[in-house]
Design a protein around this nucleic acid. Structure first.
Length: 231
DNA sequence: GCCCAGGTGGGTA
DNA sequence: TACCCACATGGG
């Protein structure tokens, strides 16, 4: 499995290159983005982030003070706006109640404690918690999302119904625990999922993983045609 | 018009 | 535990 995961990474990196996910953005901006992107296209999240930035609300204290209704209005393009406004407020409420509003203090926690605390906050599930730990706190934890699930299942490496924890253990148990690697790996899986290993019409013929993919190869050497027809 | 997108929480059996 | 559903906008 180590070899396969390493091979997949090498192929993805060779095709897509470095993804530069959230390199220059502040930690708070990363957290807000992680919440807003729940089951939502990133292009929609960007519009909402622009609105928040223009309103100068991309700061913990300001967002903490802002009424949920105002946040909802601003983040409307990201969808689920009432729900997400409530989630943003829940996070800042927690941040101020437990860590004096300081992300530096929050990130001082070890990864296990940090994850447990984040999971206890309304609106933060496993993926959002892990995204925050990896991309904001910069600690090595592997993020599992819908793309990861679909790709791994199609490659034939996991079952369709594999749990979040199973998937995460698969990566974390077989790769060196390095934050830059986990950061890039997850971003590359998203790039593949968006552009090739799509839900409805996968572009298997052009997929950089076709040679190591159970779906792309069918049960023999035939490539792509059957997989391109089915989802 | 239909399907889909970097999920999560709540309700029911 | 295992489903089912609500939540909502914007792009292909």
């Amino acid at each position: 499995m180590e070899q396969q995961l390493t091979d997949i990474y090498a192929r993805l990196y060779a095709r897509f290159g470095a993804q530069h996910w959230w390199p220059g953005d502040g930690a708070f901006e990363v957290i807000v983005g992680a919440i807003l992107t729940q089951n939502t296209a990133w292009t929609n999240v960007e519009k909402a982030m622009t609105n928040l930035k223009r309103a100068r609300l991309l700061h913990p204290a300001r967002m903490h003070r802002a009424p949920a209704a105002r946040l909802a209005r601003l983040i409307r393009p990201s969808g689920y706006f009432n729900l997400k406004a409530k989630k943003l407020k829940a996070f800042t409420r927690y941040l101020f109640a437990a860590h004096r509003g300081s992300l530096a203090r929050l990130f001082r926690l070890d990864a296990a404690t940090l994850r447990a605390e984040l999971l206890a906050v309304y609106g933060i599930g496993p993926e959002t918690a892990d995204s925050i730990i990896l991309y904001a706190a910069r600690q090595p934890i592997f993020v599992i999302d819908a793309y990861t699930r679909r790709i791994m299942a199609r490659l034939g490496l996991t079952r369709d119904d594999a749990s979040y924890d199973e998937l995460q253990q698969l990566f974390m148990g077989h790769l060196p625990r390095e934050e830059p690697l986990f950061n890039e790996y997850h971003a590359l899986l998203v790039a593949l999922g968006k552009n090739y290993c799509t839900k409805r019409a996968p572009r298997c013929a052009a997929c950089p993983l076709v040679e190591v993919c159970a779906t792309g190869r069918g049960n023999g050497t035939r490539i792509a045609s059957r997989a391109d027809e089915r989802g």
